[in-house]
Each structure stands twice: as C-alpha cells, then as structure tokens.
Design a protein around this nucleic acid. Structure first.
Lengths: 337, 337
DNA sequence: TCACTTTATGCAACCGGTTGCATTATATCT
DNA sequence: AGATATAATGCAACCGGTTGCATAAAGTGA
C-alpha cells in the first residue's frame, strides 16, 4: 500500500502547529492541555484517521495491553469438541478484554516447554495470563506464581490460593443436580465425576453427598465412577456404572460432554432416557441444547465468567488487588432428567 | 516481582564486554559478528534467561509478528457450537503461526465498526488478518482490499479473487456425498444447503447435480432447501424438505451441525436413520463422531487448512506472493448413511 | 504597577531494540 | 616493508510514543 503522509504524532503536530508532546497529551485527554487545543488536535487526528503506533506506545509505557489465553488443546493440530468449555469461555474473555481496551493472544502451551511464560511476559509481549485450571496445569501455575507473573484462573486447584480466580459454586452445583433427581423420585442416583484428584470434582461430590444425606438416602460406592471430562471417558465410566449397578435410575455427570457419552451408552443398553435413567450434566454448554434429547444440566454463567476473568485480571495488573470470585450456578431442566 | 538486573541488551553487553549492537547482531545470528564472539554472547544470554523486548523490536523493525484471527461469533458474549468450524480451524492456525514465530490475536469484530481493521493494522498491532469468508463478511473483505491490508480467507466469495485463500474442493465434496448416496441405493436424494448466495454452497450444489446427472437421475426442485449453517436452520430446512417430499430417502446436508438438526427432525417424524433416510453431513467436525448416531460426512482437512492459512499469509506478508489453495475433501462413512 | 502564582506549551531524554557507516585491527599481496 | 583489502566491532541515529522539567504567557492580588 502507498505510504500515508499522516502517520505519526509528529505529522499531526505539524498540521496542528504544536509540538508532539502536546499532541500526545491531547490524544490521551491530559488535563495539561487546554480544552480548545485538545479539541482542535483531536479533530485533526480524526480527519486523518490517525492511529497511535502500538509498539511505540507499548515500549514507552512498558505495557502491551495484551493478555495471553493459555490453551492446552486435547489435539495437537486443532481444537475440537473436547475443548468446547475453554472455547466458549474464550469468547467471553475476548469480549471482556476488548471492553477494557485489551487484546487477547491465544497461546498454545507446550507442556514440555519450561520457558513458555518467560518468553511471553519478560519479552513484554503480554501483561498477564488467563488459564483454565486443572491438575495437568499445576506446574504451569507454579511457574507463574514463582515468576510473580500476573494471571487468573478459571477454577482453583487448592484452597486458599494467593492468586486471582473465578470459579463456579461446585458444591451447590452438585447439590442442585442431586436434589432435582431426588425430587423427581429417583432412588439409585449415580455420580459420574471428572478426575477425582480435582478439587472441583471433590466439591461436586460433596454437594451430591449432602443432598443424599439430607434426603436420608444411602451413599453407595457402587454408584461412583470417574472420567477425565472427555467424551470417550464418559462412555467408559457409564458402562462401568451400569455394570456395578444395573438398577441405577439416575446419574449426575460432571460435564455435558461426558453426559452425552453416558446417554449414548444408556440408550444402547436398551434403557430409555429419562424414563429408565435420568441424566443431569454440567456446564450448560451450547451442545446441551442441540443434542437430540436436550440435556438437563447445571448451568455455569460462561459469558459472565469470561467477562470477570478479563476484568479481574486487568484490575490485578493495575492495582495488585487479588480477587477470588465464586459464581452461582443454576439448574436448567430440559428432557434428560 | 523484583526487578531482574539483566533485562536489556545493554545489560548483556556489559557482561560480555562488547557493545549492544554486537549483542543484537549475535542474538540475531548476524554474519557480521565472529563465531567466537557470537557463541560467547548467546551463552551469557541463555544463562541469564534473557528475552528480547518485543515492543522495542516491533518498533524498530516495523513488524509485530502478530496475526489477527477475525471472529464474528454468533452470540455476542461467548462462542458456541455454532462457531465450532471457526474454532476448530483456529486451533490449526495458532499452531501453524507458532511454528513460524508468529502470535495469534483473537479479534472480535463488530460488523458496525468501519474502522476495525485500521485500528489493528495501522497502529502496528498486527501484520495481517485471517478470516472465514461468508457473504456477511463481504464488506470487511472489501475494506481489507481497499486498505491493501495483508489477509487470507478460508473460502472464497467469488471467482478470481486477487487475495490469498484456502478453500475445500466444494464441487468434489458435493459429488462425493451424492455419489455415496446413489451407490447405496437411494432414489430421492435431497440437498440441504447453506445460504444459496454463497459460492461454496453453489459449488456443492453443482457437485450434487453432476452426480445425479451422471447417474441419469432426475433433479427435483422439491428436494432443495437452504439453511444458514445454524443448527436451528437445519431443523427448519429438514422439516420443509419432509413437507415438500415426504418420500425422500436421503439428504446431503452442507454442514455437520445442520445434519445433526436434520437427523433430529427425521427421527422425530418417526423415520429411522439411515434405514428410512440416509444423512451425509459436511466438514467432519469433532461433533460428527460424538453424536449418538455417528455421522457420515465429507471431511475437510481442518488442521492442514489452519496450517496453510498461517503459512500462506506469512509468506504473502514477506514476499507479496498471492496463493490460492484448494484442498481435497474425502468421504468418511460412519452410520448415518 | 509590580510581584507572585497558575496555566499552557515545548524541549529533550527515555523506553529497548536495529543497523548504516566509521574506525580499528588483521590479513594479504606485491 | 608498505599498500590495500577484509573482518570485526562500536557509534549513534532512528523507530514513535510518553512525560519531567523548563520556559513563557496570562491571571490575580496587594
């Protein structure tokens, strides 16, 4: 493209008959410049479609206004359904960051690369990181903490973390799901969790337990199984549950994707959903509504979660204030339970 | 975090007893610096975990090594299943860019904002754009062409475009799908397309026509319907097709998501898939395999598409060479057809 | 009218790299 | 030994913004 003649603050300064420091102050709405001069300069900039040079501004201010969203995709070469939770929340994050004048870089994290955060933070490329927590990311969180790098996580790995986080109320979620199944008359309610080492799985199980105990119902370990949130693990775990307890009449599944896998297994066993076995999922991802049998599920407010991840990280970068937010969840009743 | 004492090229220069220009050349592997000096400086940088400052380098070189992936999410606040094609290809793009030393910025495009590309390109924030083509993005492509902005599209809007693109062989895809249905004995094969104004839909239709003609089968306009690639439009279009032609025994659907919607409608009408109505989808997104009834579909090589979008855009940025690539597609036979 | 304060703007240094050209040392050739 | 060429390194200007401090003009009060 041909080089525009108005490209820098120097160019605007020439047009306006002032110095570039006055132009910089005017464009940044500084009180050190008179209103009259400020308006004149802003009009000239607008008329010439002037854009401040981001690298120059980043260099002189020592901030990139860019946040890295750290992904660890199940598949190496592309995203997939297994990544849907992270992808849905990414949409909210990018929206929330944009409202704050920040950009979102998608960073494909190689777990073997111990320098991954260094090369983004210490090179001035990003101001902070957003990541979805899981036990597989323990080391990466450890690295970020050791670096003193600004970051925020969706979910928490352990109690009393010193870094920013947003999470859902997993105990309440486990409780809501189980209470619904109890309320609709189910007697043998199974729990199909994620990785049992994960805190959120433990919390959801706690809610499940509490609901059963409050209803005076027995807790039967034959009714437990765990997957790893993948679709195939949901299939495997559901098969195991049906083997362990052929008479189960409901299952609370820790994710929509595993729930869909579980439904397939239940239906293929000759049982009907929800008549013979009621199924409640978790997250209320968009897939929950598209399945042939719309999924009853525990909704997490993913758009709000994304927005808060963005807002609270930027606030931490600016002020150093650590915030931990637990979002309420809600039961969404569709056809599977 | 405490300020490291080794943070700039100046710091490395002091340690190595050379000038910063020598350090810069050494770290960039310039032939102007002797091998001995180069190795010494690289070792010192490595020992001190030194990272070149990206904003400074971007400023002096006039390049950001960042590419904007332009999204136009169906929902304002988060991504969803409807965005799965764009999200799966994003994974391949980010991977491909990383291999080239580039980063990927996810840019949420507001269609009403006429200055969106300006504020990313002319501010030096990105070096180019990647976007999924559709008629809704005609104006954005027009803007990018007028700016002379480097960009590449997945898919093409019209013939003989002058910008870079990667697309699938839609005529072949339409043909493969229809031939499979013919080969399995289907007599009344419907076409459930995307927006009929879209070139790729026209090409897929062309392939469908050619296959029918080659088989000496009649082309019946009662067997056509169009959605807009959304799940709900697939439901609506399939209902329309069953109204128009209750005796249809197969349908070629232009996307997996619409195909799943179509399957739901077919099953809810009391018909069985594939016994009564065979269904072929398009794209082979990860969802195709997870559906209770695994979907026969036309696979597009999404990881390769992502990689080529990255590679060919960066090549264009560096050399100005425009490339247009049409990727082969393949039939994947599962249970729905 | 004069002294002092406040306002508005400009100068120039800095942010941290890159690199054209200058300088010095070394190598080569006659 | 001297002239010329080559290699290696350094100087300093530049990329385009931000901003502390200096300077000049305007305003205010005695």
């Amino acid at each position: 493209m041909s080089k525009k003649t108005i490209q820098t603050i120097e160019d605007i300064a020439r047009l306006a008959g002032v110095s570039k420091s006055t132009v910089s102050r005017a464009l940044n709405d500084s009180p050190l410049v008179s209103d009259e001069t400020k308006k004149r300069i802003q009009a000239i900039a607008r008329e010439n479609s002037f854009r401040i040079n981001a690298p120059a501004r980043n260099l002189s201010m020592g901030q990139s206004h860019t946040i890295a969203y750290v992904t660890h995709a199940y598949h190496k070469e592309s995203f997939s359904m297994e990544d849907l939770f992270g992808l849905e929340i990414m949409g909210g994050i990018t929206h929330g960051l944009h409202e704050l004048g920040y950009e979102m870089l998608v960073v494909h994290m190689d777990p073997r690369d111990s320098g991954w955060a260094h090369q983004y933070l210490e090179s001035g490329r990003v101001d902070g990181f957003i990541l979805m927590t899981s036990n597989r990311k323990k080391w990466h969180i450890k690295t970020l903490v050791e670096m003193g790098a600004p970051f925020i996580t969706w979910g928490v790995i352990s109690e009393n973390v010193k870094y920013c986080s947003v999470t859902g109320d997993n105990v309440a979620g486990g409780r809501l799901a189980t209470e619904h199944l109890i309320r609709t008359g189910r007697q043998r309610i199974a729990f199909l969790g994620g990785d049992k080492e994960e805190l959120e799985v433990q919390h959801r199980f706690k809610g499940y337990q509490q609901a059963l105990e409050d209803a005076g119902m027995v807790i039967d370990s034959d009714l437990f199984a765990n997957g790893d949130y993948s679709h195939s693990s949901g299939i495997k775990a559901m098969k195991q549950l049906l083997e362990q307890s052929p008479d189960l009449d409901a299952v609370f599944v820790n994710s929509d994707l595993m729930a869909i896998g579980a439904i397939n297994v239940i239906q293929n066993s000759g049982r009907r959903v929800p008549e013979n076995v009621a199924v409640v999922g978790y997250d209320d991802l968009s897939i929950a509504n598209y399945n042939n049998l719309p999924l009853t599920t525990i909704r997490q407010n993913i758009p709000l979660a994304g927005k808060l991840l963005a807002q609270n990280l930027v606030q931490y970068i600016k002020t150093g204030v650590v915030t931990n937010v637990t979002l309420p969840v809600e039961l969404v009743v569709r056809q599977s339970a």
